[in-house]
Design a protein around this nucleic acid. Sequence first.
DNA 1: TTATATAGTTACTTTAAAGTAACATAGGCA
DNA 2: TGCCTATGTTACTTTAAAGTAACTATATAA
Lengths: 119, 119
Amino acid sequence: MVKKYNISVEATLEVIGGKWKCVILCHLTHGRKRTSDLKRIMPKITQKMLTQQLRELERDGIVNRISYNQVPPKVEYELSEYGWSLKPILDSLCAWGNIHIIKEYGDKSLMLEDNGLND
Amino acid sequence: MVKKYNISVEATLEVIGGKWKCVILCHLTHGRKRTSDLKRIMPKITQKMLTQQLRELERDGIVNRISYNQVPPKVEYELSEYGWSLKPILDSLCAWGNIHIIKEYGDKSLMLEDNGLND
DNA sequence: TTATATAGTTACTTTAAAGTAACATAGGCA
DNA sequence: TGCCTATGTTACTTTAAAGTAACTATATAA
């Protein structure tokens, strides 16, 4: 077998890398969410990307998918126990981002959408 | 002006996202490195990607570029003071990656290159 | 019976990231 | 003179990620 990683951080990036996964996971650290909740909180994500990213996170054991058998469908997503082990990382990524935004733009309210989670 | 971020973690990803930046930064947490050192430690990175990523990290104030005026050239890179503020994040990304590799493959020595930094 | 609501899929296109290979620099040394 | 070194650049190609738009399913309520 060929060694896959130069350094272990690459394994983490395989799981939470890309444009959307960290964003989704940060929102899920504030509690279980329906698909429609996630779409409302992240207005710019498309249905396709949302499902795709959630599927991959589910495959990697990071989130649980809870499907209620009803019509119209109701599906909720939450961090799994393993997913919660990412909480300190997600928190510090957000915290550093806040500092960086203030450093770059002076005022974070200018750059962050008003979704009730940026206060 | 249009709000740029849904949540602050996106600002962080703009700085350290992509395939190489976290890897480069993790190596730099072990000390100042010449370009040739970095190429040796990361054999799969190309000259172009290495320079490109370092330039962006420099532009964002994360690394310092130290150029000795001599021929053949000698250039060193190190974390800036601002870059060092990422150290806790980089460390926890690596630590989580180790755990994840062990969870997925049982033995991390099977997956990590022998570059002297994975022990 | 027809419209509604929610979650998801599919084929396709666009955009962005990464990789390749050849070239540039310039002082020292054989 | 001409080659070596280390670092970096450029034009181009390839690959991967993300986005678009149209489609599906189906119990319930109007």
